[in-house]
């Protein structure tokens, strides 16, 4: 099902603006505790992370595990740049951009194996990449080896997070409705058939990986400047699993799904915090149950704007049905 979606850019952006207004009121009038505010920031930055993963795993349909590596490279690049070059807070956009661009460069390289390898083999290559990045950071003295980087300036605040999220949504939205976006979906459905209709598979894959890594890199940069420290252990197995869970929970190939997946999972993880380690038992069980009953994730490949469209259509149809039935009874 590769149809060009109608560009409801405004329809997607309006909810974000409403949410932003609510956030401003909540923060400036201190209606919300700092811990809740922190959860909101987690939700925002992980939404960016999941949008990035969704580019490759959802729209392109490749089972990639490279996101931990991309996030690590973005986070470390940003942390180094803010420690040595961009020390002022007004330079934060430059820091974010730098983190995103370094991750994007690595993403360009990581797209090469995807030309030839497929399926589980490609999953292993991308997993290998993530674990190589982690192992490399653990042994690199300059970035503090296994201790990581400490005392990073805490530039991130809730406006930056949601500003970046808005930016990420616009990028993904524009990209998916472009020629390349549609060629991604064509490759997902059938690579051979899409080659036959002259889709440039290599170029589409390269761009998808680059955009994906860019977004993930930005989310990593935000995370570092939110926590104020980073260490290689944060970008291992748990990060990979976290990313997968949020993407497939929300739905592959859906912007709304990405945000909903990130939101639900972060809220779940944070609210279950007082269960201690039992929360992972509950979380794992819930994930399994959700997969059994909602096989394609909560949103599948649908968007919120599709739902609005469908509702509108439903009401207009029922109205016409009524008039027809009234006419027939006459």
């Amino acid at each position: 099902m590769i149809t060009k979606r109608k560009n409801h850019l405004l329809g997607d952006v309006i909810p974000v603006i409403i949410i932003a207004a609510i956030l401003i009121v909540l923060k400036e009038f201190k209606l919300i505790s700092t811990s809740r505010l922190l959860i909101l920031q987690y939700i925002g930055l992980y939404s960016i992370f999941v949008l990035g993963i969704n580019m490759v795993n959802g729209y392109l349909g490749i089972f990639s595990l490279a996101h931990a590596g991309f996030m690590a490279s973005g986070a470390y690049a940003a942390a180094i740049s803010s420690k040595y070059f961009f020390k002022e807070s007004w330079m934060f956009p430059l820091i974010l951009l730098f983190g995103g661009l370094i991750a994007m460069l690595i993403g360009l390289i990581m797209s090469i194996p995807s030309f030839k390898a497929k399926g589980d083999y490609l999953a292993i290559i991308t997993l290998g990449f993530s674990l190589i990045v982690q192992s490399f950071l653990q042994n690199w003295r300059f970035v503090g080896a296994s201790k990581g980087i400490n005392n990073v300036a805490k530039f991130t605040n809730i406006y930056w997070v949601y500003g970046c999220l808005l930016f990420a949504i616009i990028i993904v939205r524009k990209f998916i409705n472009s020629k390349y976006g549609r060629s991604l979906k064509a490759i997902r459905e059938d690579q051979v058939a899409s080659e036959l209709v002259s889709v440039d598979v290599k170029r589409a894959k390269t761009i998808a990986f680059a955009v994906s890594a860019f977004l993930i890199g930005i989310s990593g940069a935000l995370l570092v400047h939110l926590l104020g420290y980073t260490s290689p252990s944060a970008y291992g197995y748990t990060n990979i699993v976290d990313g997968l869970v949020m993407v497939y929970l929300g739905g592959m190939g859906s912007i709304t799904g990405s945000i909903v997946g990130a939101t639900l999972w972060q809220i779940l993880i944070q609210t279950l915090k007082n269960l201690g380690t039992w929360r992972w038992v509950v979380g794992g069980g819930l994930l399994c149950v959700i997969m059994i009953f909602l096989t394609n994730g909560i949103f599948g490949n649908k968007e919120l704007s599709d739902a609005i469209h469908a509702i509108r259509k439903y009401f207009s149809r029922s109205k016409t049905n009524k008039t027809i039935s009234e006419e027939t009874t006459k």
Partner: peptide, 28 residues
């Protein structure tokens, strides 16, 4: 078993969930 005819990726995610459940059950 309920996911036998589902897309392979949902089974993988389900197995991730089961793995997490069992591992942390062992821990607890």
């Amino acid at each position: 078993k309920p996911l036998r005819n589902a897309p392979p990726i949902s089974v993988v995610v389900s197995s991730v969930g089961v793995g997490m459940l069992l591992e942390y059950l062992a821990l607890n």
